[in-house]
Design a protein around this nucleic acid. Sequence first.
DNA 1: CGACCGGTTGAACTGCATCAAGCTGAGTGG
DNA 2: CCACTCAGCTTGATGCAGTTCAACCGGTCG
Lengths: 239, 239
Amino acid sequence: MSYLDQNIVAATDLQRRNAASAKHEAAIASFAEFGAKSLKFAPHDVVYYEGDEARRLYHLERGTVMLFKLLPDGRRQVVEVLRPGDIFGLASSEEHDCTAETLTDAQVQEIDLRHVETSPEFQRRLTRCLTSQMNALHDHAVLLGRKSAQERVASFLMYLVPNRGGVGCVGPDPERTDDSCDIKLHMTRQEIADYLGLTIETVSRVVSELKRKGVIRADKSDQIHLHRVCGLCQMTGFH
Amino acid sequence: MSYLDQNIVAATDLQRRNAASAKHEAAIASFAEFGAKSLKFAPHDVVYYEGDEARRLYHLERGTVMLFKLLPDGRRQVVEVLRPGDIFGLASSEEHDCTAETLTDAQVQEIDLRHVETSPEFQRRLTRCLTSQMNALHDHAVLLGRKSAQERVASFLMYLVPNRGGVGCVGPDPERTDDSCDIKLHMTRQEIADYLGLTIETVSRVVSELKRKGVIRADKSDQIHLHRVCGLCQMTGFH
DNA sequence: CGACCGGTTGAACTGCATCAAGCTGAGTGG
DNA sequence: CCACTCAGCTTGATGCAGTTCAACCGGTCG
């Protein structure tokens, strides 16, 4: 069965499923003040499916989660890649508009929607979180709408470098003599392609091209060494 | 001076300017409880520029506003098209991440950021508003990342039909015998192109193609009659 | 050992961008 | 009232970045 065929099955199957609920474990702190319950997920577990009833909020404590949407013919777009601290699962209708799937082992707190209504402190945290997610979505719209394949891949890699990338990139840390960095992708080529609005082959070709140019070295296919972060940053389209 | 050249000037000029503040007028109700001040704008006025200090929130009462970002070489991406009821101007850093420009005459309420911190009622409205904007951004990411030019234009036109388009499109109103509709774009071909991640020529060609197929009729270039809304909806990629 | 999955690479194709020319209609001025 | 202009739009011809199709490679697992 081809990749697209698999997604078609997934797309038509969305309505019927109802995820999460299964894999919880002991409760931990952080949003405990809101009666949050902590769940653990393995890589590629689904937290909820697009179309599931939206009853709870989720706070990502550890690991990485992606949100994606499917078109009925199987085309997929990963719309967000979330990191620890992000909140997800808030829906404007009764249903989730995306599927949420883990990329790595992940720990997620489940928060009762009631707190959205009642706790001003929680509201403030939520607003801050939503705002920064909106900013990320704006940047991503620029990437998807206006950047070349090479710029997309470069931007994606920079996104994984702590405190770098983006418009306001400060340049290399003056404290350090070299400007190299090791990053772990935690995503397959397919997931990267679906995030960047490209095909798997194009992602692969651009990565190979970057290796050939000596900008990066790929130790394992999801473990990449950036020789000069600033050099890569120059390729994002932001400079 | 070419279009891109103009944008380059705009892009490099962003930091220096500081918009809004000039064109206010009498205060009106709606968010008046939060001490909001009502401003009036003409088409293509700028409410704030990307990089301006983010001090206030804005509530769109009447008209249409777009948010866009520029790359330093002049490429532009319109990231959101806002409608009455939407709130904009909330920033996760000290600066606005987009430029906000009116498409039509518009009336905008300026709200003090203090209310974000203090009023739970305001917080609730804000959360609801941000959530639905996030959903729109998710849909737009799918459009930009995965849809063909024709699907983009069809989706865009459907977006302008009240209560239609999107995944959960209910189909034609059973009360009505015909399924036609008149819409006004309020955007130039350039703005549409920058919103859909296409070029002006491609937008023009797709619109002409839709005319040739008899799906639409363009009375004036920004005034379009949809013969069968459902037929157009079939071309969005959602069905 | 073979099957399989994720990734890479090559060759050919194509949808959209680019470049260039012409059209249309609103505004301006003689 | 018509000629001129200019901005926004359309249309055609050509080019190319990225997709598609297909073969192959290397690691892992039963």
